[in-house]
Design a binder for these strands. Sequence first.
DNA 1: GAAGGCCGTATCATATTGTGAAACCCAGCC
DNA 2: GGCTGGGTTTCACAATATGATACGGCCTTC
Lengths: 266, 266
Amino acid sequence: MVAQSTGADAKNPIQVIERMMKLLDVLSYYHDPVSLKQLALETGLHPSTAHRILAAMGATGFVERGEPGSYQLGIRLLELGNLVKSRINIRDSALPLMQRLHQEIGESVNLGVRQGDEIVYVERTSSGRSSVRVVHLVGARAPLHVTAVGKLFLLEDGLPALREYAKRTGLPGLTPNSLTSLPALSRELDKVRRHGVAFDNEEIEQGLRCIAAPIRDDSGDLVAGLSVSAPAERHSANWAPLVKQTADDISAAIGYVKPDQPAARR
Amino acid sequence: MVAQSTGADAKNPIQVIERMMKLLDVLSYYHDPVSLKQLALETGLHPSTAHRILAAMGATGFVERGEPGSYQLGIRLLELGNLVKSRINIRDSALPLMQRLHQEIGESVNLGVRQGDEIVYVERTSSGRSSVRVVHLVGARAPLHVTAVGKLFLLEDGLPALREYAKRTGLPGLTPNSLTSLPALSRELDKVRRHGVAFDNEEIEQGLRCIAAPIRDDSGDLVAGLSVSAPAERHSANWAPLVKQTADDISAAIGYVKPDQPAARR
DNA sequence: GAAGGCCGTATCATATTGTGAAACCCAGCC
DNA sequence: GGCTGGGTTTCACAATATGATACGGCCTTC
């Protein structure tokens, strides 16, 4: 008797539910149907108990039974998942985290999405703290290759698409620092890949620098970029980890899970 | 005491889980955050009980708490849902149901997906029952406008795209019955829309008729068509409901939920 | 500004609920 | 045929979740 539970328990989260989650964890770990024995083994539950819980979940479509004694995640989860997805909204999910970042850094934090060959800024922290309020109003647009956020998208596109973009747009320069040649831009994107964050070093506007990190949705698609923009003299490269972390947090909030660490919680 | 449960219970599906599902049902019904009271009311659970269960679910990400006492479905469901989605495979899900249909009708049952301007058949029931085995081998291709399955996709595309298709392909005819003019094809698609199934009346091959119904995935996209093909003399229009039903069953199996009846189960 | 609701959360004795050892059953295998 | 090894079902037991009650914010009302 008594739970010989492997891990620690938070408070009193109804053992049944906790066990249920354990089972779902195991099921989500193996993409193929799992046998009862296996489940019982890995969760540390009695086969009997596991069976009972699984049966209950089966009745509601949480799990499906193929061969008797063989279980896998059920479509009901897909239904519910889609419901969640439909209510998720990047701006709303991002805003609180953006504000947190804004508190920490004290500079403008922006959320930009791609629209064709441009980045459009859809959200911006609007505290009055910073006296010199630089930059992008909400709704502002800018070419991909001169913005930090835009570079994230260009990298995602891959080299062939980058070439087309270059040909299509001619890579216009807005400041002396703008990267207006394909090789220069390509090298820059390589840097972005290595760092996981992108920079804009006075490429769109003199005296303005940016750092941006990618935000991905539940299917792994790059859906937005989070950027901090500040006057060049106040800019600090130390922000990079913070920006990246915040972007990751937002990604998580909208359902992104790192490819290597699947949905399993434990 | 005693469960004053509204509905009937299957066997002994662990009350807690059943209750949990009730809560999820209510949560999935309202797309916005729901208050504890509301939940308790609609599920018939004691506020205290509801609270406890919700807390447990909250600990695992099944539900999220915004304002205290305000609950909504959590991202964990999205994670699990995506896992389910990734393992779902139309062919595998469709096959058993196709075989069932094949039993009932005794004619070839085919599964076709779109590939550019063609339908390609990716699965076919292969019982030896019917001596005269007509039709499409797996892997066979055919233009959209002369196949029942193809018409489903053309209808989905809408009129403008249909015009482009017509211009692009020239609507070649394969038999005297083929519809080779835009007006004729457009009228035909109207029929498809009204009936919910599409027909092919010896349009691809003399003496061969088909009925097809649409298969949709969890996001409502048309992903395949299910068709029954038979020699014209054996063909029966009575199959239509059966084909439609089977296609609907397959859709359900891969996560499609009818738009008007959301994920709620009860 | 105090009183009164209202709603979410925490407490705790109670008995209803889920538990798990053992029995059962069904295949497949020696 | 008997045996092993899984899945499923049973059942007496007590640990478990239950829900009446109490608590504590917060807002509205008077």
